[in-house]
Amino acid sequence: MATVTIPIALGGTNTAYSDGTGANGMASSNGYGYNSLFIAMSQEVINACALAVQYATNLSPAVGDRTVSGNLGIGVSPGAWSGSSNVVQVGANFALENNAGAAGYSVYNGIRQSGVWKYLGTGAALLYGLETSGNYSWYTAPSGTAGNTISFTAVMTLNPLAGSTATASGAACSLVLGKDGTTSRTINAGGTVNASGADYAEYMRKAPACGVLVKGQICGIDVHGELTDLWDDAISFVVKSTDPSYVGGDVWGTEAALGMSRPVQPDTVTDLPQYEAELLLFNAALEAARQQVDRIAFAGQVPVNVVGAAPGQYIIPLRDGVGIGAVAKDLAELSLEEFGQAVGKVIAIGDDGRARIIVKVA
């Protein structure tokens, strides 16, 4: 295998030798007191080290940390960025930029020149920013031509400094957002908000004597505004939600309601056992609080646990022993009292034979 000897140096004068057999050369001292390295390498190794050579030639010989004068390119020579930009460019289309020592951005197919974003190549552009306002911002731009000015459009902004998340439920979820300290808003949507659920529901507290409520069950509301499964205690009737798209009244699981805070995962392994013990206690308190509430449908479509109904009929609550049952009736058969107590109108029959209704709150 043929070999070549190449120097990798940080500066200064160097001396080295190669014996011509492919064996290692020598390391010697350069003018800055750092070792320079001369190695006899195969061509394959030389190709693999090309990036390291490019990086080393830009190193400033400082005691301790190493710094790069100018921008850094990985797999590519960095483009002609604005003088205020400190950049790590990776490949032809991606870069990390710190602008004037302030905001930081990751950008695809964009380059800042004279303070203006321009397309690096032909195609769409994407931008994500950690901005001095405290915002996390995402931007997109349609396909454009290399060298043309980019007009980014903000598609999402998160402001973690806007307010506290302490009023949010402690239940497990994918995303927790705070609220604005002035307007109390969390989300402003410029378009529709789509969800897969079929009804609007709210959490309601259960009366102490109320048993387990199943999805689609008709239950009552007592004089204290609490859910009941006892006919004699009910003054109006509702249906437990099955597949809500939105749930209101979710305050039962907040840290204030529980009287305790969710533990924060520690940075050290030694503190992990205490964290896990505290988390078990928190989750137990959360589940105990959850058992005291249930989700009730107040609008939209919901299945109800009544079979034998036909589309167009109304679902009317009735006594079932000490509990609450229901029956389907045609409009012509209803008394005024029954119409007032109806929980909804049947619009379809599900594959399981249960009626699907449009919710009518009694």
Rank of each mutant, 00 (worst) to 15 (best):
K215V: 01
G216N: 03
T192H: 10
D199W: 09
G190A: 10
T192R: 13
K206I: 01
I187P: 04
R185C: 02
K179G: 02
E202R: 15
K206P: 02
R205S: 05
L161M: 04
G163C: 09
N148E: 13
A146W: 11
R185S: 08
L175I: 12
N188F: 12
T192V: 09
C173W: 00
I221W: 12
N159I: 04
G191S: 14
A189M: 05
G147D: 09
A166E: 03
G197M: 06
T183F: 07
C219A: 11
L161F: 06
V155H: 01
V176Y: 02
L177A: 08
C210Q: 11
R205V: 07
G191M: 04
G147Y: 13
I218C: 03
V155Y: 06
G191D: 09
A168Q: 13
V214A: 11
K179Y: 01
K206T: 01
A201I: 07
S169F: 03
N148H: 11
L175Y: 09
A207Q: 01
M156H: 05
N194L: 14
G170M: 03
I187L: 15
T167F: 05
E202Q: 13
T149A: 15
T167V: 11
K206F: 03
C173Q: 14
A198Y: 14
G211M: 05
G191Q: 10
A171T: 01
V212T: 14
P208H: 12
A166D: 07
V214I: 07
A162Y: 02
T165L: 03
C210M: 13
L158N: 04
G220Y: 08
T149R: 13
L213E: 01
V193F: 12
T157D: 11
R185L: 10
G191R: 11
A209G: 04
